[in-house]
Structures are given as C-alpha cells and as structure tokens.
C-alpha cells in the first residue's frame, strides 16, 4: 500500500540513525562478551562473572539499591503527583518547573552538592548531631544511604511525571463518584486513584529501576570504591583493567536483566490498557 511505503519513508532516517548509532555499536559490544579473540563463541566471561562471589555481591547490591530507590521514588512520587494533578494549573506549572529544574543542571554538579551536604561536617550530619542522633565526625558519605538519597533526587522527576500524566488524564468525576458512593477521601485515593494510576506507577518504576541499575557517576562518587555497583564495575573493568571482553560480558548481563523486566511490564500495561 502506498501509504505504508510513505510511512516507511518517513521513518527511514530515524531508523537508520538508530541502526548505525545504537544497534550496531551496542550489538558489537555485547558480541565481544561472548567471543574468543579468534571469534568463536565462548560463555567463559559470563560464567566467570556468575561464579565469582565478588561480582555476585556487586549484582546483589545493584539490584537491592535499585529496588530501594524505585520504592522510595514511588512512595513519595505518587502523593506528590496526585497533589500536582489536583492543584490549579498555575501552581501545577510551578511545581513542574520545580521538579524538572534539577534536570537542567549536570548530574556531576548535583552529586558534588550531595557530597558537601552528606560529608563530614556537612549540613545533614550536623543536624543529626545537634538532634543527638550521632557522634562527632559522623559522615553519611560512602554509605548506601548516600547512594539512595542522591539517586532518588536525580530520578524523582521521571517517576512524578509518569504518574502525573496518568492522573491528569483521569476523569475527576471518578473520585467524586467514589465519595458519593461512601468512600472517605483516603479511601477514594486508595480504591480509585491508585488503581487507575497503576500504569503510570509501573512505567515510572521501570524507568527509575533501569536508570538506577545503569547509573555509575552518582553511586561511585557517593558510595566510593568500597560500594561498587554493576555500572561502576563495567566502567572500572573497561577503563582501569582494560579487560574489554569481561566488561562486555557484564554489560550483556545488565542488558539482559533490564530486558527481562520489560516483558512483565508490557504484559501488565496491555492488561491495563484493555
């Protein structure tokens, strides 16, 4: 059909760019992880990763931190997005600006900011000390808490904007109907808004989870060398030990894990979508 051919023609430049700039390099890197120098298939690098406790520890920390970051983002993001959806359009605009403004500054700068706030003698330990919670010389730097705090701040907008979109599209009469049918305000949020907003929460969670699993600047700066995560480990392997095939194998594992997450998501949204 002619219109079909036109569709392809319009999509062609984008598809070509995607092919050349994304699929080919990523594909060849991934291939590097399962090939010997001679070019034959070998699972050796992948097996090495999956059998060494050190790397399994890194994987476990990566998953754990990503789950915690996603949960925190969702738990704080849902009420925040709900409030944003229900305030007037003018205030909503300001809140959107407030939320997205940090996205316009460099991640590195923001991470350094956290280092100042969380480090020894920084604002946060100072406040905790004056509340009698911690001793002198306490620092939050190089802890998993620091990684979670820094990452939540970076990824929060993705969660909030995903949920906001869904709640804004929801018929506000649904909540009123729930109230008239006997729900208190909190019950109407729990029984109507939450289920209707679920696709947005799932989409936001997926975004936050995959991004936090593959982030390396913030975790390596705030967590330090003693708390490596998978993305940081790939970076180290590739740049410091220059073991490209092993770095590629680690990438392959990260890539596969994220891809596996996508399938249940697609099924879930399809169910919610009709």
């Amino acid at each position: 059909m002619a219109s079909h051919r036109e569709d392809w023609a319009i999509a062609a430049p984008g598809l070509l760019l995607l092919l050349l700039a994304f699929l080919v390099p990523v594909g060849s890197i991934l291939a590097l992880g399962v090939r010997t120098e001679g070019g034959e298939f070998t699972p050796a690098y992948v097996i090495r990763f999956l059998t060494e406790p050190y790397y399994l520890g890194i994987s476990w920390r990566t998953i754990k931190l990503s789950v915690v970051i996603t949960l925190v983002c969702a738990l704080v993001g849902f009420p925040f997005a709900y409030i944003m959806a229900r305030v007037g359009p003018r205030l909503r605009l300001w809140l959107v600006i407030l939320i997205t403004l940090p996205l316009m500054t460099s991640v590195v700068v923001r991470t350094f900011g956290w280092m100042v706030l969380l480090g020894r003698g920084g604002l946060v330990p100072d406040i905790m000390r004056s509340l009698g919670l911690v001793r002198r010389n306490y620092t939050l730097m190089h802890t998993e808490v620091a990684i979670v705090v820094g990452m939540v701040q970076i990824l929060f907008p993705f969660m909030v904007l995903s949920i906001l979109g869904v709640i804004l599209r929801m018929d506000p009469r649904l909540e009123e109907a729930a109230r008239v049918m006997g729900c208190t305000f909190l019950q109407s949020v729990r029984r109507v808004v939450l289920p209707v907003a679920t696709p947005g929460i799932v989409a936001g969670s997926l975004l936050v989870f995959t991004l936090s699993a593959s982030y390396f600047i913030t975790p390596s700066l705030l967590g330090g060398a003693r708390l490596p995560v998978l993305a940081g480990s790939i970076y180290e392997t590739a740049t410091r030990t220059q073991d490209w095939p092993f770095a590629a194998a680690q990438s392959l594992i990260l890539f596969t894990a994220v891809l596996l997450l996508l399938f249940p998501y697609i099924r879930l949204t399809r169910k919610a979508g009709g």
């Binding site: 009469r173 009123e176 109907a177 289920p195």
Partner: peptide, 13 residues
Amino acid sequence: IAMVFQSYALLPH
C-alpha cells in the same frame, strides 16, 4: 444519597 454523573464516572478497573 446516590448520584449519576453526566460522564457516568464508572470505575474503569
């Protein structure tokens, strides 16, 4: 009370 809305407001889920 009970109410029927113009948009029906049936709970989609």
